[in-house]
């Protein structure tokens, strides 16, 4: 009886895992299968045409890359700096406690609330308008907790011996950080950045009312232009296009590119991290 229930349990767990795997493989195969037909060099390299019923996804694709770049420029220094503070400077003080709780709370804020916040602070209060800058800064806030956690872990993983060795040679704290701690932690931090990009690239809700455009004739040229983004483009085509059923191939194509982009970036990050942790 006891062995019987052990067998049943084992069977149930294998069953769950296998069916989940099959389901996800099926979904992925479906997306690839449908999207593959739409994929071509022109699809990638041409902007949408004819009221977004034809052409490609060049504009939203570039827009997404621009959003990623600007948001990372904003988030990486702050994230790494805060991680450095936690690992090297923080004492058990009230400030540190508040900081930790803030980051924890920030990590739980729903993405649409980040959107509201971006709208009220960047778009309206600071007067950036609905623009690439506002959207990127909103995304930067969203990815900040990820960046902080990743860099803090990276710094903490640097063995104390390295620091002691540097101090023993007469280095100051800042010299030690710059010459020893930062270089040792760099690859882990880069992994953190890549994983943050993977998270940010597909976000839709925070940019809907902070800077994502329904349609722009060309690629955004300045920080204050509105910008098309791939995930929002999919949303628009699927829900508000001029001819939703007729543009299905475009939608599948765009979804496939988005999934490919996000999973491509993230798998590099996951792979790098696996290698780094194995090396330790």
């Amino acid at each position: 009886m006891r062995k019987f229930s052990d067998k049943i349990a084992t069977l149930v767990f294998w069953g769950t895992a296998l069916s989940l795997g099959a389901l996800l493989a099926g979904v992925l195969a479906f997306v690839v299968n449908r999207g593959w037909a739409a994929l071509s060099w022109e699809f990638i390299s041409e902007p949408p045409r004819d009221g977004m019923t034809a052409g490609g996804i060049w504009t939203p694709l570039v827009g997404t890359l621009e959003l990623i770049a600007v948001s990372m420029v904003a988030t990486v220094p702050v994230g790494v700096g805060t991680g450095l503070y936690f690992s090297e400077y923080a004492t058990d003080s009230f400030f540190t406690h508040v900081l930790r709780q803030s980051i924890r709370a920030l990590a739980g804020v729903p993405s649409v609330v980040f959107g509201l916040f971006g709208l009220s602070l960047f778009v309206i209060f600071l007067g950036f308008g609905s623009s690439m800058l506002s959207a990127s800064l909103t995304l930067a806030c969203l990815s900040l907790p990820l960046m902080v956690t990743a860099s803090e872990q990276a710094f903490r993983a640097v063995p104390q011996d390295y620091r002691d060795a540097s101090y023993a040679l007469g280095a100051t704290k800042w010299q030690t950080i710059r010459k020893v701690v930062l270089p040792s932690a760099a690859s882990t931090i880069i992994t953190g950045v890549i994983l943050s990009i993977g998270r940010v690239a597909g976000e839709t809700a925070p940019i809907i009312f902070t800077g994502a455009a329904f349609y722009t004739p060309g690629v955004a040229q300045s920080l204050f232009d509105e910008v098309m983004a791939l995930p929002y483009h999919v949303y628009v085509l699927a829900t508000a296009g001029t001819n939703i059923e007729a543009t299905r191939p475009l939608q599948y194509g765009a979804i496939l590119v988005l999934v490919g982009l996000v999973l491509g970036i993230s798998s590099v990050g996951v792979w790098m991290r696996t290698r780094l942790t194995r090396g330790q």
């Binding site: 702050v78 805060t82 503070y85 936690f86 090297e88 508040v98 803030s102 709370a105 920030l106 509201l116």
Partner: peptide
């Protein structure tokens, strides 16, 4: 610098609450 940069995180959370 490390201290003031970290303050940004607190400010953002504070601003989110404040603006909402």
């Amino acid at each position: 610098t490390a201290l003031s940069v970290s303050t940004v995180c607190i400010l953002i959370m504070g601003f989110i609450l404040y603006f909402l």
